[in-house]
Computed example of a mutant assay.
Amino acid sequence: MLLAEPRGFCAGVDRAISMVEQALETYGEPVYVRKQIVHNEHVVRELQGRGARFVDSEDEVPEGAICVFSAHGVSPAVRDNSARRGLRVIDATCPLVAKVHQEAKRASANGRTIVLIGHADHEEVEGTFGEAPDRTVVVPTVDSARRLELPEGTEVTFLTQTTLSLDETRDIITELTRRFPGIQGPGTDDICYASQNRQNAVKEIAARSDVVLVVGSDNSSNSVRMVEVARGRGTPAYLVNDVSRLDESRLAGADAVGVTAGASAPEFLVRQLLNRLDELGYTGREVVRTTTENVTFAVPGSLFDHAGHRD
């Protein structure tokens, strides 16, 4: 059995969860959270048990109550609506997502059209798109980049969702650069360090495994991308929400099993899966480390101070 390192929680996820926990400890329940704080049902369930109340919209939060914005960020319209309703906002947006928002603001202020590489239905993309909805077009695939039509002379900037596949995003950027030679952008730098590191690690274990299991929820973009990256290396790969939903028939004939976890998946889920694999006879364990992560994002001294930074 090959265990990828790094795996699991990233700095942005750690920070966001810590902010909800600290809000509960400091102010007591209820603390309202707009959307899932991170995309993992087990994390959400645990916080619910401690008094967090998850809502789909800030409109569901009682006026004047505490409302936590999730790690995926929100649009200016959500911020404005929250202010009108007198909500006490705690902003748990990942600092790397906040960086993309700032890039969108700058591009829009400079009169540029923004090509946002990502998935339109993802909360992160909804938030970034909302910074300049009249100047932004979402491009999810190479084919959509190939078919994109913009008026002659349009000044174009591209930005990316932070949790995408590095390889696929590079292909989309190549196509956009071919189509729009004057295009500007941050390269692949918008894709967060954790997504890059976990994708590199899954490539390493996929090359040596008969099957790869990625612990993560179905709505976790970075976890789904890790499955796709492993499959792109020719290795069967599957998303496992938790050990109770492991389809053991997928291990038939597999001698070497690779295990990793998305950036929003808690380590206890990995341990439960490893214990079950031990019971199934996969007792040898090798940690495959491709890099060491030492990034942290500080929780603001005051939760209502939204300035996260990289240590």
Score class of each variant (00 low, 15 high):
residue 192 C to R: 00
residue 111 G to V: 13
residue 164 L to H: 02
residue 307 A to T: 12
residue 54 F to T: 09
residue 273 L to V: 03
residue 4 A to N: 08
residue 222 N to I: 04
residue 194 A to H: 01
residue 287 V to M: 12
residue 42 H to Y: 10
residue 181 P to T: 09
residue 174 T to D: 12
residue 177 T to L: 01
residue 75 S to Y: 04
residue 98 A to M: 09
residue 133 P to Q: 10
residue 171 D to M: 10
residue 259 V to Y: 01
residue 162 T to G: 03
residue 172 I to T: 02
residue 156 V to Q: 02
residue 128 T to M: 10
residue 36 Q to T: 11
residue 48 Q to Y: 05
residue 243 V to T: 14
residue 151 P to S: 11
residue 164 L to S: 01
residue 204 E to L: 12
residue 89 V to F: 02
residue 125 V to L: 03
residue 176 L to Q: 05
residue 257 V to P: 01
residue 240 V to D: 01
residue 119 H to K: 04
residue 254 A to D: 10
residue 66 I to P: 00
residue 63 E to H: 13
residue 242 D to L: 10
residue 24 L to G: 10
residue 262 G to L: 05
residue 136 T to Q: 03
residue 46 E to Q: 14
residue 52 A to L: 08
residue 54 F to Y: 06
residue 161 Q to H: 06
residue 104 A to F: 02
residue 244 S to D: 15
residue 111 G to F: 14
residue 137 V to D: 05
residue 255 D to I: 04
residue 9 F to N: 07
residue 23 A to S: 14
residue 92 A to L: 06
residue 10 C to W: 03
residue 266 P to W: 11
residue 19 M to A: 12
residue 33 V to W: 00
residue 156 V to S: 03
residue 178 R to E: 14
residue 8 G to M: 04
residue 43 V to H: 01
residue 294 N to K: 13
residue 219 N to Q: 08
residue 300 P to T: 03
residue 165 S to N: 12
residue 154 T to K: 07
residue 141 T to M: 04
residue 197 N to A: 13
residue 256 A to L: 13
residue 242 D to C: 13
residue 133 P to N: 06
residue 79 R to H: 15
residue 284 G to Q: 13
residue 259 V to S: 08
residue 217 S to W: 05
residue 37 I to E: 00
residue 203 K to T: 14
residue 306 H to F: 03
residue 97 V to C: 04
residue 69 F to E: 00
residue 62 P to S: 10
residue 113 T to Q: 10
residue 79 R to F: 15
residue 235 T to D: 04
residue 110 N to F: 04
residue 304 F to C: 09
residue 300 P to F: 09
residue 82 S to C: 15
residue 105 K to N: 12
residue 65 A to E: 15
residue 167 D to C: 04
residue 101 H to W: 08
residue 160 T to P: 00
residue 175 E to K: 12
residue 194 A to I: 01
residue 271 R to H: 14
residue 99 K to S: 11
residue 176 L to H: 04
